[in-house]
Design a protein around this nucleic acid. Structure first.
Length: 578
DNA sequence: GCCGTTTTCGGCCCGACTGTTTTCAGTCG
């Protein structure tokens, strides 16, 4: 069982305990454990063998024992017992917007409703009307919630690459409204999660009423979920939920911290504030023994009030950032402006849409100082991969373009080579030696058993001609889970060989994802952030890779393609034994 | 169920909006 599958199991336990009406703090404990496990970058089997499960935040004696039972037996008796007691459809009902544990339990035990279709039928046939607190409006709300539930039944979360542009468009529209001062995208988009539950926007205005009225009447709004004086929520036609908060400007700092989250980061800040005798919310710090409120117009002022330096939003996950801040050991995170190169892109030679020349010019326009042309190898038949003959032919063209660019941008020749299903590489060493830069990637056999798929990656790492592993885990967001890789073995090998690992900036990949990138960088493994562009415009997706790297605590010096050209060439020379 | 510069027991962050049992519980973030 993977970490994310185990996290899902603990989340489902929390759901079922909620329906049973268990103690809220016990439920929260399962949720916190699920959250920690889901973000944990190491294989729990190894951690369990080392006896270190209880060192994971939110995992105590009881949950550690449950993890061990899952690892040993493949299942958990506690979970099975709950699942036997509570029909699975009742847990689905809990996930309908507007239905919480109390109503889910009431529908089940009060009316014998055990799945979403029968809830919908009961609502339409008027059978909910007799239940407590189910007036006409509540019934209509349930039906709307079911409609939305069915629409997002396949994937509940939206890729960052879809949510961020939508959020930017809507925020820009709101900023046009008279009286609006500051505005920002907050929540999980600002923290750069690879997938987003809903869009959180915060703006300042002295009079929120007009802002709210315009917001809920936007053209692309499908329905209004809530419409209050400081907070409104809408669902867009594309299914995305957008929450807007409006506050006067003097509350900007506290509001932005509050709505950026994460929840656990915020809880820790509020707990620290309480230790100083201050209650913290989105409006202000309030002394608990009375006295004047302390307003913060900036986020810096909020952190300063708690005695901390500013913490960048991407690492606000309660994953050690507060402790690092206390010790003055926060990383100096990479920025988009640090990027000088793009080392993974495709052209018409394989499955790209532009020529070598056009890609070089597009990269130059974007301020890149050097690039590598890395078309697919012949094993990637579906992508029109290059034979050895075509690869060598392409090299002549790349050299010509490089010369013609006159030094304004350097254009290197490389490949994105298949790691074949049998574990061998697609080009022989004598060919690889003629290339400037070699990426090896998994595209096939991603569902192979753990030992087999891991060994293929280790084979590639152990080849001295391979400089970079492209999108190491092989996930596609949101539709394909990563390969079942032993990442501890991958990191140990990459550390030994000095091979770089990629953060693929394409929002459908974001691979390595942040928690693995963070661990790789801790191992001293070089990181490379690439767009994997198949057309000139997709070079603009670099920002998603940088956001992911920031979320992984990564500094510019750890990223190859922030280096000046000379440093990059020295690194290549050293790898090639020159 | 977790956790500790108040604590190994007794706490566990905080507020907005909605609908309804009209004074507050349920839901959400």
């Amino acid at each position: 069982m993977t970490n994310s599958e185990m996290a899902a199991m603990f989340d489902r336990i929390a759901d079922m305990l909620e329906i049973k009406g268990e103690n809220v703090h016990r439920i929260l404990a399962y949720r916190n454990a699920a959250n920690s496990i889901g973000q944990f970058p190491r294989d729990l089997r190894i951690v369990a063998a080392e006896g270190g499960l209880e060192e994971i935040s939110g995992v105590g004696k009881v949950i550690a024992e449950k993890i061990a039972e899952i690892l040993e037996t493949g299942t958990l008796q506690f979970y099975e017992n709950l699942a036997a007691e509570i029909p699975p459809g009742v847990v689905d009902i809990l996930h309908i917007n507007g239905v919480g544990p109390k109503k889910a339990r009431m529908f089940w035990q009060g009316a014998g409703i055990t799945d979403v279709p029968s809830l919908e039928a009961a609502a339409r046939e008027g059978k909910l009307a007799g239940l407590p607190s189910m007036g006409a409006k509540s019934i209509a709300r349930v039906l709307e919630g079911i409609e939305s539930f069915n629409r997002r039944a396949t994937d509940t979360r939206t890729p960052l690459g879809v949510a961020l542009p939508t959020a930017e468009r809507i925020l820009a529209m709101i900023m046009q409204i008279e009286g609006v001062g500051k505005g920002a995208i907050a929540g999980s988009i600002r923290r750069a999660l690879p997938t987003i539950g809903d869009v959180d926007l915060v703006v300042t205005a002295q009079d929120a009423t007009m802002v709210m009225d315009i917001f809920v009447q936007m053209d692309e709004v499908a329905r209004v979920l809530g419409h209050g004086p400081t907070k409104s929520s809408v669902e867009l036609q594309n299914g995305l939920q957008v929450d807007l908060r409006v506050l006067p400007e003097e509350h900007w700092g506290t509001a932005l911290v509050y709505f950026t989250g994460s929840k656990n980061h915020g809880i820790k800040l509020r707990t620290m504030a309480l230790a100083k005798g201050l209650s913290l919310n989105e409006w202000a710090f309030t002394p608990v023994d009375g006295g004047e409120e302390i307003l913060c117009a900036t986020e810096e002022a909020v952190y300063s009030q708690i005695g901390l330096p500013y913490i960048p939003p991407e690492i606000r996950e309660d994953m050690g950032e507060i402790e690092a801040a206390q010790k003055g050991k926060l990383p100096k995170l990479i920025q988009l402006s640090d990027i000088h190169a793009d080392l993974h892109m495709h052209t018409v030679w394989s499955d790209g849409t532009a020529t070598v020349q056009e890609m070089a010019e597009a990269a130059l326009e974007r301020g890149r100082k050097y690039i590598v042309i890395t078309d697919h190898s012949h094993g990637a038949t579906i992508a029109n991969g290059l034979s050895i003959e075509r690869l060598l032919e392409q090299q002549i063209e790349v050299r010509r373009v490089d010369a013609e660019m006159g030094g304004a941008i350097r254009v290197f020749h490389g490949t994105e080579m298949e790691i074949k299903a049998d574990g061998t590489l697609d080009f022989p060493d004598e060919i690889l030696e003629q290339l400037d830069f070699v990426i090896a990637s998994l595209h096939v056999g991603l569902r192979q058993p753990r030992v087999q798929v891991t060994q293929r990656l280790l084979n590639a790492l152990n080849n001295p001609n391979v400089d970079l592993i492209g999108h190491p885990r092989g996930q596609l967001i949101p539709e394909r889970d990563p390969a079942d890789l032993d990442m501890d073995a991958v990191f140990a090998t990459a550390q030994k060989t000095g091979t770089a690992l990629e953060i693929n900036a394409n929002p459908h990949r974001l691979d390595l994802e942040a928690q693995y990138a963070r661990r790789a960088a801790e191992f001293g493994i070089p990181i490379c952030i690439d767009t994997d562009a198949h057309r000139p415009e997709t070079m603009d997706l670099m920002r998603y890779g940088v956001m992911t790297a920031r979320r992984g605590w990564i500094e510019a010096s750890q990223v190859i393609n922030t280096w000046p050209l000379e440093q990059f060439m020295q690194w290549l020379d050293k790898r090639n034994g020159r």
